[in-house]
Design a protein around this nucleic acid. Structure first.
Length: 400
DNA sequence: AGGTATTCACATGAAACTATTCTCTGAGTTAGG
DNA sequence: TAACTCAGAGAATAGTTTCATGTGAATACCTGT
């Protein structure tokens, strides 16, 4: 037994890995070269250029679907500006903030607190009035004469959640600052985002606008090839694999992030199977695995009540009938009794079902059954190959 | 037959409540000078 | 008297409950032919 294992490790070590540098395919990586975004880079650079003379550049709004290079390009350009400024001893600072990150910047308080922390202040997670946090933030940045460039990624999410008040406050802050200035780069996935926003905020925040079109399959191929060259050893990718990755991602509005993830996971799977090459079949496997892991992760980290709801839905799904809210609630009540949990109201379950829909675990649509009322018709979108694993995870989590 | 009115079974919204986490403040306590 | 402790007040936030209102179309109910 021990022999076998040590041989396994031995083999593992001697085997040439497929990857040279896996980091290059991971999502946080900012490449040196961004193909097919020259135009956008140039435009953004043009807008931000005044920063090099320490004048406040216009605020910019960047739109585009997920994985169209928004974050990548803005980080890249801003970083270049930062470097140049440092070289010329200009006090220009940049800060990147992702507003969607749970528990970090998804409320007004947390966002300002996070910004303040980013510039060195010490802000507690709770307990202070929001006004106070604003003051701390102002004080910290005002301690130096500087120009700030703030990248607010995915603000549409934040605004959707807590309103556009926060943006108004931010832009207004600028006029209260004596010592320094702030420029904003807002990044949004939602193209219609500014439409129902306070016009005052809109005009001051989106003085300039950039739209990132989605990549097409050919462009995705270029991106993948470039990164694959850096990330993998030479010639480990089978002919056509890259093309397939690109095609899959292109099908989903040209999401480069997805394409890269697909390629990375394919590589990981191939490596695990001791293959010398990443063959095409691994891409299908990878797509399956990504989806399964995503759902499994969501479900495992859900609170018990959500798990119960999900479980109820899956049980009904197995019976192969159409599923409606009322049935689920009934079954859910039953489950609660069995597990010994205090059941929630139907109102709440209704919301939970809507949340599950948002997460892409199920597909629900509101229909009217005429005389027999109005309800949600629910469909499970999990492919059946993944269903059993997920059910088991649920059962285990619930102790059933 | 054709047109209205009902009605069902929830959806959807808003507000209020609960519980938790954390700060700040000031009263009371302690220990050293 | 300075330093420390500790309870209470006040904030932010997540997750719910309560109350109120909305709604699409299958049926029930008319109506005049």
């Amino acid at each position: 037994m021990g022999d076998k294992l040590s041989k396994f490790f031995e083999d593992y070590l001697n085997k040439e890995p497929l990857f040279v540098n896996k980091k290059i395919l991971q999502s946080g990586y900012t490449p040196e070269n961004i193909p097919h975004r020259d135009e956008q880079i140039k435009q953004l650079a043009k807008v931000l250029a005044p920063a090099l003379r320490k004048e406040k550049p216009s605020n910019v709004f960047i739109y585009g679907k997920t994985g169209s290079g928004k974050t990548c390009v803005s980080k890249y350009v801003v970083n270049e500006i930062y470097k140049t400024c440092k070289k010329n001893k200009l006090d220009v600072n940049v800060y990147y903030l992702n507003c969607k990150m749970k528990k970090v910047a998804d409320t007004e308080y947390r966002m300002i607190a996070e910004l303040a922390r980013g510039f060195g202040a010490n802000v507690p997670a709770t307990g202070l009035p929001t006004e106070e946090v604003y003051k701390i933030f102002i004080d910290t940045i005002e301690s130096k004469n500087q120009l700030l460039i703030l990248i607010l990624d995915e603000i549409d999410q934040l605004v959707k959640k807590i309103g556009d008040n926060i943006l108004y406050n931010l832009t207004r802050l600028n006029s209260e600052l004596k010592n320094c200035e702030m420029a904003f780069i807002g990044i949004s996935n939602d193209l219609t985002f500014t439409e129902n926003m306070d016009p005052r905020v809109k005009s001051s925040l989106s003085e300039e606008e950039l739209v990132f079109p989605p990549y097409n399959a050919i462009q995705l191929q270029d991106i993948l090839k470039e990164r694959a060259n850096l990330a993998f050893r030479k010639n480990v990718i089978e002919e056509g694999a890259i093309e397939k990755c690109a095609a899959y991602a292109a099908r989903e509005h040209g999401d480069a992030r997805r394409a890269l993830e697909l390629l990375r996971v394919s590589g990981e799977l191939a490596e695990r199977d001791n293959q010398l090459k990443v063959s095409i079949k691994y891409i299908d496997d990878a797509e399956n695995k990504i989806e399964r892991d995503r759902i499994l992760d969501i479900i495992k980290t859900q609170p018990k009540q959500q798990q119960l709801t999900t479980y109820s839905i899956l049980e009904f799904h197995n019976k192969g009938k159409k599923i409606f809210t009322g049935e689920i609630y009934g079954y859910y009540l039953d489950l609660c009794r069995r597990v010994g949990l205090k059941p929630l109201t139907q109102r709440r379950i209704s919301d939970i079902i809507a949340e599950l829909d948002m997460l892409g675990i199920i597909n629900s649509k509101v229909i009217s059954k005429g005389r027999y009322g109005r309800t949600r018709e629910i469909q499970v979108t999990i492919p059946s190959s993944n269903l059993t694993k997920i059910e088991e995870a649920l059962k285990e989590g619930l102790g059933l």
